[in-house]
């Protein structure tokens, strides 16, 4: 069971919530940080130095002896990552390449072969002996965020856990989709501001297109009648949890503390939340 924690708007407390959710359920959940552009879960979870693996992709490497500069690969490439430089022959621009492999197949002279290039890293660690954190990290300047996200999700688990929590990237674009396609349930974290509400609606639109079940977590809630609560009530969306607005919580989080430190009793609520999702899932599968 994979549960994605997502939000249309950035800065709603998505990572804060994911971290608390996994900490409260550490006996039965692991966490994968899929916000590969700006992975933050490790800042709150601490733990030992991670094992680092490189996410490799294949870019074309030119054999100058075989290349006849016919231009078939240049014409094929949708990303303008190849160029013919007159007498200088064929040039490859790895930062524009999307690693599709098309040029290598299309070359009539077998002059292109696969060469590895790094798109980012996967960092794995076990915290306190029982909590697994996998962090995907995009290389700065690389365009291949979805590649790194898919690699992080596909990383073989070190610990056997019933649930994997995916800390999703913000927004509703391809990175978000790459993460969400792997999920069985989505928790959407919002705040009750006009921006938060607007972006929540966009995220729901995207998730419905993928036919994924979801529920809403309202962070910094101003009570059962705040903007987000009213919106969910009107639309009939399930609210999985409310976390009250508080300057103390904000300050605790700014010091790197977690919600479990800041709010007494929230641990049990987070266990109940996971129970409820697992139960609904079981009904859906069997029903």
């Amino acid at each position: 069971m994979k549960i994605a924690v997502a939000s249309g708007k950035g800065g709603t407390g998505k990572t804060t919530f994911s971290v608390a959710l996994v900490l409260a359920n550490r006996d039965r959940a692991r966490i994968v940080d899929c916000d590969v552009e700006e992975p933050n879960a490790h800042l709150f979870l601490g733990g030992p130095e991670p094992v680092v693996e490189t996410v490799r992709a294949s870019i074309p490497v030119v054999d100058g002896d075989l290349c006849t500069a016919c231009g078939a690969c240049v014409d094929f490439c949708q990303y303008n990552a190849l160029a013919l430089a007159g007498s200088g022959g064929l040039l490859v621009f790895p930062e524009l390449c999307h690693d599709c492999g098309g040029c290598i197949r299309i070359c009539p002279n077998n002059a292109l072969t696969e060469g590895p290039v790094s798109r980012g890293t996967i960092e794995t660690k076990i915290i306190g002996g029982d909590l697994e954190l996998v962090t995907g990290r995009l290389e700065v300047g690389s365009p291949s965020a979805p590649t790194v996200i898919r690699a992080a999700i596909a990383r073989a688990p070190l610990l056997e856990r019933e649930t994997t929590i995916l800390d999703a990237p913000p927004g509703t674009a391809c990175s978000f989709a790459a993460c969400m396609l792997a999920a069985d349930h989505c928790l959407l974290v919002t705040d009750p501001t006009p921006f938060g509400l607007h972006d929540l609606a966009l995220a729901i639109e995207a998730i419905r297109e993928m036919s994924k079940p979801f529920s809403v977590v309202i962070n910094r809630s101003l009570g059962p009648d705040d903007l987000a609560s009213v919106f969910c009530r009107d639309q009939g969306y399930a609210v999985a949890m409310r976390i009250a607005e508080s300057r103390e919580i904000a300050q605790a989080c700014s010091q790197g503390k977690t919600l479990l430190d800041a709010i007494p009793g929230i641990g049990q609520d987070l266990r109940d939340l996971l129970d409820a999702i697992l139960e609904t899932r079981a009904t859906e599968v069997s029903g």
Partner: peptide, 10 residues
């Protein structure tokens, strides 16, 4: 600009 450091930011 958008958040992050990916395609749309670049």
């Amino acid at each position: 600009g958008p958040p992050g450091i990916g395609c749309p930011v670049i």
